[in-house]
Design a protein around this nucleic acid. Sequence first.
DNA 1: TGGTTTGCTTGACAAAGTGAAACATCCAGG
DNA 2: CCTGGATGTTTCACTTTGTCAAGCAAACCA
Lengths: 150, 150
Amino acid sequence: MTRRMDPLTAEVVDLIGTIVARYYQEYDAAAAVHRLTGAQARVLALLAPGPMPMRQIAQRLKCEPSNVTGIVDRLEAQGLAERRADPADRRVKLAAATEQGRDTAAHLRASLDFAREPLGALSEQDRRTLRDLLQRMLGDAPAGGSPASA
Amino acid sequence: MTRRMDPLTAEVVDLIGTIVARYYQEYDAAAAVHRLTGAQARVLALLAPGPMPMRQIAQRLKCEPSNVTGIVDRLEAQGLAERRADPADRRVKLAAATEQGRDTAAHLRASLDFAREPLGALSEQDRRTLRDLLQRMLGDAPAGGSPASA
DNA sequence: TGGTTTGCTTGACAAAGTGAAACATCCAGG
DNA sequence: CCTGGATGTTTCACTTTGTCAAGCAAACCA
C-alpha cells in the first residue's frame, strides 16, 4: 500500500488541488453577487440553454433527485426558474429558467473572471498546449460542455 | 458587459470545470472509504504533518473557526484527532492527529488514484509542461503549500 | 491595574445532501 | 382491458457544512 508518487506528479497534483480550491471559491463568490449559492448557480447554468427534467438535473449534479427539488424550489422563489409540465410524460416536471433567470445566468457566466484572468498569463500557444494536455489527461472525454440532451 | 471569451479560452475553462468536478467527486469517494466526509478528510490531511491551532485550520479552509469546532469534534469522536493545550498560549487549542488518524491520512493519500491514474496518460515531459503551465497560470504562487502565517 | 484584542465554543439558523416512504403516471404481459 | 411493476417527483426526518452573534478565558498594552 501507499505506493510513493514521484515528486513531479505530486507537484502537479498539488497544483490541481490549488486550482480546484480557487475555482470553487471564485465560483461561489460570483454566485453570491447574484444572491445565489454555488449549487443554485450550477443548476441555473444548466437550465439556461433550455428546460430539463428534474431527474436529469440530478444526474448532472450527481446527487439524489430529492435534493434537486429543494434547489429548484429556491430558484423558483427568486423568480429565476419555474416548473413546467412535460406534454410527453405527465410524471415529469421540466425545470426552466425564466427570462430573468437566463439574464442572471448570462451575467454569471460573464463574471467568471476566474477563468479569463489567470489564463491571461498564457499565450495563445500556451493555452492550446494546456487544452491538449488536459484533454489527454481526461481521456479525451468531451469536456462536460454540451448537454446533447433532447 | 459580458465581454465574449474566445473559443479556445472557453474550451480550457470547460476542461478545468470538468477536472474540478471529478476531483471533488473522487476526493469524497476516497474519504467515504474511511467513513469520512470531504471536509473531515481535508482537516485530517492538514493535521497529518503535525498539530495546528484551530484558528489556523479555519484560515486554511477559508471558513469560520466555529465551523472547524464541529469538524474536529467529529474527528475526535472517531478517535482520529485530539485537542491539546498550547503551552505557549493557554487560549489556543492545538488539534492533532492521533496515531490512528495519521494512519488513516496516509491511506487516504495513497488512495488518491484520481491523481495518479489520469496523469498516467501523460509522459514525464508532458507532466513537466503541464506543471509549468499551471504554475504560470496561478501566478507562480507556491502550490497551496506553506502557510507562512505567524 | 483595566480595557481591548484574540482564540475557541456555543447556539440558532440556512443550505446541501442522503435515504425511505408516498403518490401519480407510464408501460408491458396476460 | 387491467393489473403489476417501474419511473419521476415530492415530502419527511436526519446529518454535515457553513454563517453569524454572543459569551468566556486568556493575553496584551498602556
